[in-house]
Design a protein around this nucleic acid. Structure first.
Lengths: 340, 340
DNA sequence: CTGAAAGCGCTTACAG
DNA sequence: CTGAAAGCGCTTACAG
């Protein structure tokens, strides 16, 4: 490993001060352009590596942004992350990622790490049960936060998410318009704002159509393909045999469709299945999945922009418009079909 | 934002030196246990936040490990990342993730960022075309590297991956044993060691069985669901109408199965389709996908352990055993069926 | 346009 | 067992 090269190495070699080198490398107009070029060329030639820790210690800006979500392996978050990445790349911020798996302790550890590293900000999809104090604590220690996908009441920071109640109502209404009257809701939880909103949207649409809502038709839980797959049996033996399922998300819907297929049933023909999110793979699923576009890219883009704005000292209102979901009709929903 | 609390704040309040506080907080036996407890309690009470930048500047260890892969959104890498995460959590390393999307410049930028942050090491699945010098450069600047999934000839660092040639031969042989003689290869590239090895394994198995290999039966490229889906038409119009497809990975296989389904064909009955990787979703795909287990968790686990070992000053040989793939027979393969 | 000097908040010999 | 002091490698007033 070569001898450590620092600013003073360059300064000594070129007979200038470290102040001049520091300014030159950052393209300051304070340095004469000839000097600047001479310095930059030399730095490149000897392979100088800028020490961000030292700089950050001095300036107290680190160029690091933290992003914490439930699970980056989940394509829903992965799609959001992709657009966050695009946005942060643009403002040359490095981002550190973490899963919290809805474990508050893991989330706290991560926020702690960010504070220790002097991160500039954090984008989080808060773990279930996150108290507003956890977010205030970050803010109070100089770590501005922006929320995605879920809100935390009382946190008073900007949150970017879709209008879940409206979106699930859209999905439910689509099934009702096809003629379904017995509609199940598969997946989700009351532990998050999102979960409560989606169930509410489903109930609203049912009641608005004069249909009764049977609490037994709710199968809470599933949020993954595997869980949707595993819920198939329970769905098929539900009282009153619902003819359609509003699923928590595309993953659980695809899992359910796969499960139905194993049982000899085809979604869209024997049972209507509707998802939520409109993941990239929804369109190529078998059969193509009817779903509700949830604006992942939009969420990521807006959240990252808002955080960058906050980093630049701009005020960003904690009141943010919900993103407007849209129905995407494909092949997994159709007229009701009675099973026996 | 509260007044900045540092070691000296605590030292002053308790009438001890910063050295003692520093040692106490790190549980040094050099500090009397009563003093230690007094310090730790006080630190917690006033909400002290450890400044890792300052510490790292002094010790030149940062507790940061970089991980760069083609695309974290790809479940293949996501599964590897999950086991890397488990391993790094154990040794309390923070990890920074990045996609390179096979863009050498993006990969270089990331390595640069790691160097600037004083990262302790990097785990990388090198971008296509990565020259060994890129890896030497990192190593020479004190950033030990460990490779996953792909190797870089001449890099002389440990690389953890499966025996691709053997694995694809397994897959191909399985089809041959079922009676297939015209077998296509869908997806992959010659740009990586993995790509070359897999094509070689396919050819080996075909030739060993006395079957001819038609270059036209190779459809290079697809590595995603969408691409596998899009390749369906080409596959169906291949000269000599192959009855089976060895796919690059599970994603392209699932995409192809979905495409076949749209064309009214069912994998395992009309066409045999075999994947590679054995992703979590392979078992619940429709139909359940026959594939080759590629040891993602094993790769992640071994790579992270090896890096941690290197960080602790242990020697890790650049010669690493290949992970032994295993066949997983499910429903997407069967006896040959002639189409017309 | 350039330089000398202080300081960011830690840790680590060294002395006692 | 504890303290005084130097130093990690930058940046930023300040002076010239």
């Amino acid at each position: 490993m070569a001898q450590k090269i620092k600013l003073s190495t360059i300064a000594d070699a070129l007979g200038v001060s470290t102040a001049t080198v520091s300014l030159a490398l950052r393209d300051s107009a304070l340095v004469a352009s000839t000097t600047r070029e001479r310095i930059k060329t030399h730095a490149r030639e000897i392979g100088y590596i800028y020490n961000r820790r030292a700089a950050s210690l001095r300036t107290s800006r680190s160029g690091i942004v933290g992003v914490v979500v439930h699970d980056i392996m989940n394509p829903f978050f992965a799609e959001i992350l992709r657009s966050i990445e695009t946005e942060l790349d643009r403002s040359r911020q490095t981002f550190i990622l973490s899963n919290h798996y809805d474990d508050l302790e893991k989330q706290r550890n991560f926020v702690d790490t960010l504070l220790q590293l002097g991160a500039d900000g954090v984008i989080m999809s808060p773990a279930i049960g996150t108290p507003p104090e956890d977010i205030r604590m970050a803010e109070d220690n100089g770590l501005p936060a922006v929320l995605i996908a879920r809100d935390v009441e009382g946190a008073a920071v900007p949150a970017f998410r879709g209008d879940d109640s409206y979106g699930t109502a859209l999905a439910t209404r689509h099934l009702i318009e096809l003629g379904h009257t017995r509609i199940a809701m598969v997946g989700g939880t009351d532990g998050t704002s999102t979960g409560r909103d989606r169930y509410q949207g489903y109930k609203n649409a049912m009641e608005a159509a004069g249909l009764s809502v049977d609490a037994a038709w709710r199968i809470p839980g599933p949020r993954t393909k595997q869980a949707g797959f595993d819920a198939t049996e329970r769905f098929l033996s539900l009282p009153g045999k619902p003819t359609a399922a509003v699923c928590w998300n595309d993953l659980s819907a695809i899992g359910l469709m796969n499960g139905l297929f194993r049982a000899g049933l085809v979604a869209g023909r024997d049972v209507s299945v509707i998802g939520y999110d409109d993941l990239e793979e929804a369109a190529i699923a078998t059969p193509a999945l009817t779903t509700v576009w949830n604006g992942q890219r939009e969420v990521g883009h807006r959240a990252a922009s808002a955080l960058v704005a906050r980093l630049n000292g701009e005020e960003v209102s904690a009141e943010q418009e919900l993103i407007h979901p849209e129905l995407r009709i494909r092949a997994s929903t159709g007229k009701p079909h009675e099973r026996n």
